[in-house]
Design a protein around this nucleic acid. Structure first.
Lengths: 348, 348
DNA sequence: GCCAAGAAAGTGATCGGTAACACCAGTATT
DNA sequence: AATACTGGTGTTACCGATCACTTTCTTGGC
């Protein structure tokens, strides 16, 4: 009776509860299993049956109940995206790209910010991996040195964005580092000889990569690197590096691993009476929206960050499905140098 | 037999499949239902039973299978967070705060970026609400004018962050607008009389609010507003506003609704030979990490954005649970004016 | 010391899918 | 002609929780 009342209420309110495969099967005149089979491999049905199922499906606006599905099949449709604590300095566009890619593949995205001390972070990751209902992990945070959750990681597919940069570099392909090389070459072509690099944290592959290419290229071209400061991507760390640079005096070209640190560098130089680009040229990386409106406007590297995020996610999903990632997913998004006011010919 | 083999394999591999309430019940010597009851209301158990259950729980490291739970109970543990397409200009810290709050309440967070034309966005929202397995929606995007998915929204709890600003303002409390008032007052105290406001998109309550308070305060203090430009939060839109301001000439104080637009304004003024703060003072909002390293450093409003995001999420979760949101969740996070180089006494 | 009533715990059905197997015609093999 | 195989479909059990109901244990009043 209560059942009836509920059903009736649902009817009158038009808030029909979601149709199940049984509803679909009844309408199509087949068994529920046939409907289930349809989703697994539509090709396995007889054309006539297939058509009837599809018609019923469309008529009822059926959407599968993921909870029921994953309960039985033990497959999961939730990927966890780990973003750095300092997501202030983390390009949100990468996250968007990754989320969009996951959604279009039918996965849910859970965003988790990893924060606190190294120990606390390891613990967070541990409990994260413990929640047995996740299909995979996409981390924008570099993998901790000691593999902390080694026994889990066998089970759950995990992609650490940026790690493949290393592979690419090893393969000598046009990876992240290619732009770093072009930056140094460009500055050299403007007459600069004395360089300084503000690197990102060593834990980040992209930071290591940019730094390595910087040092390589400076050496190759017979230039001088007057030092490398390791920052944490923040403007404040760039500022600290900038003070060092100002103290050195001879530096005329600075390459910062991201725009935010470049902003800090420029500020510090300004406070020490050094003009950009008259006294020192500064090159950034990421091409933030603000960079073309700074005073001076900042030369930088423009990347398609959405694409980058989407590709990382594609790689993860391929791995979840046990497929080979599409080669396209492994190649890097195109990047482009943007020359602005902050870099100029060295003063005579 | 096959069963046995599997069990044995699991034993030897140490890859025991996740324990269920039946395992817990067996270990504790009670029925599975008692374990289920434990999670619903631990108080309903006899102290002796409770202790045994808890011991078994701890021993097995039991974690509930959310898929099974939500299949039966029709409750869901996934909230969708909607962020604006232009998330470049959206403070990621709010997202972090919201995600953290949701996680600590046992909910999964799915981040969706709403993009495209108004029509496409409405459609996205529609399908989003169609996916019947979500507990609630937290939108950082203003609600579209016409309630598009009205028939759904009855069912799914939805909180639009920032909307309560309006309520607060209506109540005359110390809301978002209070800082706007202080900004105008401060600039007036520095001798400024001719103001200009660069507002955010009209669809955003916070933008409307800041603008309204700006106009109110200017009128109250007998100052002059030489215009209001409506931007889209981007530096580029600030730049466009800055060109207008430069053309007006008499403006000596600009209040921008966020730091990014303020950066655009400063750039435009610079290009027209107007110095900040010597000729024009500029005040921003949000206190981005970069703001204290710009040239000149930018006066701004510092807010605890994590707290803001967390409170919005708390409100949503309360609504999901049918509770009254904690009053604390409704009050605004404290905000604080930060005075930097970009604002100075008006030139004699 | 007995019985009614409420508290505590147990039993079996159920949610909406998938897995495993049975079944059944039609074809291929021996 | 009997058997094996195969593609297409139906039948039943099962995943791990909660729900509705039943049963057992306490407790209190007389």
């Amino acid at each position: 009776m209560a059942q009836e009342a509920v059903a009736q209420e649902a009817m009158t309110q038009g808030k029909a509860k979601a149709p199940t495969i049984y509803d679909v099967a009844a309408l199509a005149g087949v068994s529920h299993q046939t409907v289930s089979r349809y989703f697994k491999a539509p090709g396995g049905l007889k054309p006539a049956t297939l058509e009837r199922v599809e018609k019923a499906l469309a008529e009822l606006h059926y959407t599968p109940n993921l909870a029921a599905r994953s309960l039985r099949s033990r497959e999961h449709y939730r990927v966890v995206v780990v973003v750095p604590e300092a997501s202030l300095y983390f390009p949100a566009r990468m996250l968007n790209g990754a989320a969009a890619a996951a959604h279009s593949a039918g996965y849910r995205v859970d965003v988790v910010a990893i924060e606190g001390t190294a120990e606390a972070r390891a613990h967070q990751l541990e409990t994260l991996l413990g929640g047995e209902d996740i299909a995979g992990i996409l981390s924008f945070v570099p993998r901790p040195k000691g593999s902390p959750a080694a026994r889990h990681s066998q089970a759950i597919p995990m992609v650490v964005a940026g790690e493949y940069d290393n592979k690419m570099r090893a393969r000598g392909s046009l990876a992240d580092g290619a732009a770093a090389r072009k930056i140094v070459e460009h500055l050299a072509s403007l007459g600069h000889r004395n360089f300084f690099h503000v690197a990102g944290p060593t834990a980040w592959p992209s930071a290591r990569n940019r730094r390595a290419v910087y040092e390589e290229t400076v050496a190759e071209l017979g230039l001088v690197s007057l030092g490398v400061a390791v920052g944490d991507w923040s403007p404040a760390s760039g500022y600290a590096a900038g003070r060092k640079i100002a103290a050195i005096k001879d530096v005329t070209a600075v390459f910062a691993a991201n725009d935010q640190m470049a902003i800090g560098v420029m500020r510090a130089l300004h406070e020490h009476g050094l003009a950009v680009p008259d006294d020192v040229s500064v090159f950034g990386w990421d091409d933030m929206a603000e960079s073309s409106f700074l005073i001076p406007t900042l030369s930088s590297v423009h990347m398609d960050l959405e694409a980058l995020g989407a590709r990382s996610m594609s790689e993860l999903i391929a791995r979840i499905r046990g497929q080979q990632p599409a080669t396209e997913a492994l190649s890097l998004a195109p990047m482009e140098l943007v020359f602005r006011e902050s870099t100029a010919r060295v003063r005579a």
